[in-house]
Computed example of a mutant assay.
Amino acid sequence: MFQDILPFWSQFLFITNMVVVHTCVTLLMDVPGCGKGYLGPGGLDDHEKYYNCTGGAAGYIDRYLFGEHMYKATIPMYETKQYYDPEGILGIQTSVFIVYMGVQAGRILNTYQNVKDKVIRWLIWGTFTLVFGLCLCGFSQNDGFIPINKKLWSLSFVLVLSGLAFYIETFLFLVVDIYKKWGGRPLFYPGMNSIFLYVGHEIFKNTFPFGWRPVDITHGTYLFMNLWGTFLWVAISIFMYKHNIFFSI
């Protein structure tokens, strides 16, 4: 029953310790001028109470150790002036956790031979991580003990994302591999030119029609803009595939 876990107990112990250290530093470190446990974007957030606290402990540690980063991210919605790297020291620890959840998904695929066993294990892991993450964020978008925050790679974010990924893995495994009801299109096409699309997005992400500065600055408007940009790049990938154009390294 636990053959995908017990032989790898040392790996689980290492990952668990990493998450515990990340959580303790994030919530208990007394950041100068900001206090303990702030997980917000700074700037205008919370009536400018934490204006220069962008990223909380994660942002403070990175700025203290490295100064200004090459990656100079700001958050337009909150008019932040303080640079923050979403891929800093603390964020790496929780991103390692979500990568390991991918390892676990692959381990289940290779360990269990019966389709039913694979599906049950994926659903168990998906339900556990999803519910745990939702409990941490209080089943809300912006609140809870540890709010969902992609730029911080918060623990609730990686848990919720892991849970959804386990569910999606289960769905795709059944529909594509077992019942063969779907061949993966249109997602198949971007995968054939992934390097080109990545470089193209980095170059044109702030250029119309791929991106623009919304008049109404909300999460919804940015979501629509990014979905529209994704649609355009998928369309471009389909065009390239139909004309036998491929870029690879």
Rank of each mutant, 00 (worst) to 15 (best):
D117N: 11
Y112V: 00
P76K: 08
K72I: 02
M70C: 03
E79W: 13
H69P: 08
Y78K: 01
P76F: 14
G106N: 11
R121A: 01
A73W: 15
E79M: 13
W125L: 03
S95H: 13
T111I: 06
Y83W: 14
Y78W: 14
F97Q: 05
I120Y: 11
T80M: 14
T111P: 10
G106C: 12
K72Y: 09
E87P: 04
V103E: 08
M101L: 10
Y84H: 06
S95N: 09
K72A: 01
V99A: 04
Y84P: 08
L123M: 13
K81R: 10
Y112L: 00
G106W: 15
Y112F: 10
M77E: 15
T80N: 13
T80R: 08
N114I: 13
V103L: 02
E79F: 12
T111W: 15
A73Q: 14
V119N: 06
G88R: 14
W125M: 02
I89K: 06
V103Y: 09
S95G: 04
T94C: 04
E87V: 02
N114Y: 14
Y100D: 04
D117R: 12
T74F: 15
V119I: 15
Y83S: 04
V119L: 13
T80P: 15
V96A: 06
G91E: 15
E87D: 09
E87L: 03
R107N: 02
L109G: 00
V99I: 13
G102L: 12
V103H: 03
S95R: 14
E87I: 01
V99P: 09
L109K: 03
L109W: 13
Y78S: 00
D117C: 06
N110E: 07
G106L: 13
I89Q: 07
